[in-house]
Structure formats: C-alpha cells, structure tokens
Design a protein around this nucleic acid. Sequence first.
DNA 1: AGATATTAATCAGTGTACTGAGTAATTCGG
DNA 2: CCGAATTACTCAGTACACTGATTAATATCT
Lengths: 151, 151
Amino acid sequence: MAAVDLTTHPGHLARRLQQAHYLLWTTMVSEEITSPQYGVLNALTAEPGLDQRTVGERVGLDRSTVAEVVSRLCRRGLIEKVRDASDARRWLLRLTPEGAAVHRKLTVRTARMNHVFLAPLSGEEQAVFLDMLRRVADAAEELKGADRVGV
Amino acid sequence: MAAVDLTTHPGHLARRLQQAHYLLWTTMVSEEITSPQYGVLNALTAEPGLDQRTVGERVGLDRSTVAEVVSRLCRRGLIEKVRDASDARRWLLRLTPEGAAVHRKLTVRTARMNHVFLAPLSGEEQAVFLDMLRRVADAAEELKGADRVGV
DNA sequence: AGATATTAATCAGTGTACTGAGTAATTCGG
DNA sequence: CCGAATTACTCAGTACACTGATTAATATCT
C-alpha cells in the first residue's frame, strides 16, 4: 500500500536520464572513451598543465574518481602526469598528441549525439531544459559546503 | 584549442544532477538504503511477488544490477526470495514486515527531499522539468529496442 | 522424444562515484 | 624554525551500471 509513482521522482528520472545518455554515448560517440574521460581531455585542452584536483573540479569528479579516470587515460597514452617542480604533492596533467586527436574526433561526435539526445525537445525547450538542469545541480552543490541540509 | 563548455552538454549536466541527488538523498533520506534500493521496495509494495527481472523493468535496473541490489536487500532482511513453484528459473520477491516499515519511513523523507531538490524551480517549472526529463529519457530508451537491424 | 531456442539468473570484468583512513609535501602559527 | 594544520594524492571498501559468457529451466518445433 502507499506505493509511489517513481516517474514523479526527480532522482529516479535523473538516474534514467544518465542511463539514456550512456546508451547514446556508447553507440554514437565511443565505446572506448567514456563521457567523464572526455571531460578530462576537454579540461586539459582548455587549460593544459592543470593539477589533478583542479581537473576534477572542472569536470565534476571527486578526488578518488579523478585519480582512476586519469590513470586510465595515462594507460591509454592520451595524457601524461608530471610532478610539479614547485610543489611535489601535485601531478600536472597534459594531453599527448594522441589525446588531442581523440578530443577533436570525439568533440564532433558529441555534438551530433547531443543533437539526437535533445531531439524530443523543441529548440526553445532545450535551452530551458539545460538551464533547469544547471540550476538544480548547482543549488544542491552549494548545500555541500553548508553544515546541514535544511528541511 | 577548441575546448568546449561542458555546461552546455546535457550528458555532463545529467551526471551532475545525479550527483546532486545522491548528496541530498544521503543527507536527507538515508545513508543505509540507496535510491535504487528504495525503488525496489516501492515496486514490491505496489506488486508483491514480482520476479527479479520484472522488478528491474519497473525500477530501471538491468539484470545484473537488480541482482546485486536484491541480494543486498535480502542480506538486510528487507525482502525475501522464493523460487517460483511453477517456473523454477524465477525468484519471486516479497517485502518482509521490516521492508514494508522501511519503505513507509523513507517515502515520507523522500517527499521532503524532492521538495528541497526541486526548490530552485517554481511550481510550474517543476512540472515542466519532470516532463522534459521523462521525454528525453523515454526517447533514448526507445532507441534501445529499435536495434536498427538493416536485415 | 529429441535437438533447438528462449528465458531467468549468475558470474567475471570494467568503469563511475562516494566515504574514510593514510601518506607525503607544503604552509602557518608561535 | 619547529610542531600543527592544511593540501594533494593514494588506497580500501561499498554501491550502481553495463557487457559478454555461462548455467539451468522451460518452451518450441519438427
């Protein structure tokens, strides 16, 4: 009794949205490189030589996850880690030429994939949708710093 | 060069939305029971005695994931598995009294959490947002079946 | 009946994501 | 200038999520 309709729950829909995106990504963009991995390549394209923690901040990956993603990209020869000479705690990250090439190729495919992904919405709706996603995600993000989540 | 703004990418925002939801869930609903686990409890509240595969269908969990989630809920004594007498391949799932109690408790908290999660949007916007999430997720889901066999 | 296909569930492998504990390097306060 | 806090990163553990391969039971089709 008192079962609920999950399709009215934003959390359930958020998970389903990500599963939907995963499906389109693997079929339309790449089976080898994942979306978060592409995010890292993109961050390092914009700002070469970033340290690991800052890359995570840019892409939305926590300290542990960014370490794993970075190690996979290293293993595949798409980025390289070098110790920061002025602060030996840091790894500075940089794209290899192969990494830059992969980023260029996937950028084109990602644009096509985004088009298909958002196709159920009209052009105006798409802008509204992205704006709402940002607002909701950002608001929760800010609660992270706060002591408690108010009721 | 040619780096892209990830905040215009729906896939990136979908992942961030789910992270945001995870944060609110663990702080406002439960640290023990996850959102997908709650989904299973909810499905079995609506339809007791479902088999594992159908539960996965209702909640949006694939065959492997639903097996893991179900085994965790069993280990915690919230649901129980019984072999289907008429089809010995199937496990039929049912809530225990504890499972039903947990579902009731979390349903209340989840409603509060959803309220906070969507607070950045106006009442009208919230309805539009949920509708858009459903439309985009459903559309990608359909591409799954339309396996585009060029036979 | 017997070979074949289908179906439910499991298992191994990979990848994202979080927490808490631990290590090493740097910075800060007295 | 030395001990304490902070910072960057690592590591172990847990949980979702998908794929491909496998096992067991059922259904189907000559």
